[in-house]
Amino acid sequence: MPDLVWFVIRRLLATVLVMLALSLAVYLIFYALPADPARLGCGKPCTPDRLEQARHFMQLDQSTMQQYLQFLKGIVAGRTFGEGAAAVQCNAPCFGYSFPLARPVTTLILSRLPITASIAIGAAVLWLIAGVSLGLGAALRRGRLFDRFAVGFALVGVASPSFLVGLLAILVFGFWLNMVPVNGYVPLTDSPVDWAWHLVLPWVVLAALNAASYIRLTRAQMLEELNLDHITTARAKGAGEGRVVLLHGLRGVLVPIVTIFGLDLGGLLGGAILTEKVFSMQGLGELLISSVGQLDVAVVVGVTLFSAFLVILANLVVDVLHGVLDPRVGHA
C-alpha cells in the first residue's frame, strides 16, 4: 500500500495548489463586484466619514491583493479587525469574518454543516439503495413491465424540479395527510428519532429525484456486464443466478456507481440550496443564499471555497476507491 499513501500525499499537495488558485479567483470575482460590504456596516445615517471608518475596520481600504494576502494569513494565524476594546477577533483557521452576522465564517460553516450533512448523507444513502436496486431489477427484467416502470420513473425524476416536488410533498404528506413535520431541524444529538423524523421528507424528495441517474447507470452498466464472457464463466463454473448477478455482475458496476456517488455527495454536502430553502432547514445552502442577499461577501467566499474543497476531496476519495475496487487501476 505505500503506492497508495504516496498517491494520497501527492494528491493532497495538488489539492492545496488548486485551492490556492481557486481562492484567488473567487476572491477577485467577488471583491470586483460593484457592491460595498462596508455600506452595510456603517450604520445610519451613513456619512462618508463613518463609511470610511467601517471600511478601515473591515480592512476593505486595502488593495484587493493585500486583502487576499490577509485572508491567506488569517487561515494560518487568525486575524484581528480593529483595535483596542472594539477589536474583533477571528481565530485561525479564519476564513473571513461576517460583520452582519457578527461571527467568523469558520464558525458559521461549522454550525450549518451538520444540517446539510444530515440531509445530504441520508438522502444519498436512500438514493443509492433505491437507484441501484431499481436499476438492477430493470436490467434483469429488461423489456418487461418492471423495466418500463423503472425507466419511466427515472425519466420523471430527471425532469422534475426539486422545489416543485418538495412543495408537493409538503402539501400532501405534511398538510393533507399530516404524517410528517413540514419543517425544522432537530440535532441528532438531541433526539435521533426526532432528527430522522424531521428529515424524512427532504430525504425522500432528494432521493427520488437523484435516484434517476443511478437507475439508468446501473441498468445500462449491468446489461453490458451481463453480456461479458466472465459471466458465462461464472455460470459454467456452477454459480447460481444470484451469485452470478451480485458477485460477478454487480461487482463490475461498482466502480462507475462509486464514481458518480462520490461526486454527487461531495457536491450536495456543499449545500442543498433548493431543498434547504423548501424545507426551511438552516444549512450551508441557506447560509449562502442569505449571504448573497445581504452582500456578505466574506461568507459567500468562505462557503464557495468550502463547497469547492468538498468536491475536490470527493474526487480524491473516488480516485482512491477506484484503486481499491479495480485491481487494474494503479496508483503509482
Binding site: T232, R235, G238, R251
Partner: peptide, 25 residues
C-alpha cells in the same frame, strides 16, 4: 444443472482474459 456445471462437465474458453473476472484474484 448447476450442480453438473463445472463439476461433472467443465468448460475452457477461447479468450482467457475475458473469461476470467478482472476483479478477483
Amino acid at each position: 444443472l448447476r450442480k453438473v456445471r463445472g463439476n461433472e462437465v467443465a468448460l475452457v474458453f477461447q479468450d482467457a482474459l475475458s473469461a476470467l473476472n478482472p476483479y478477483y484474484s
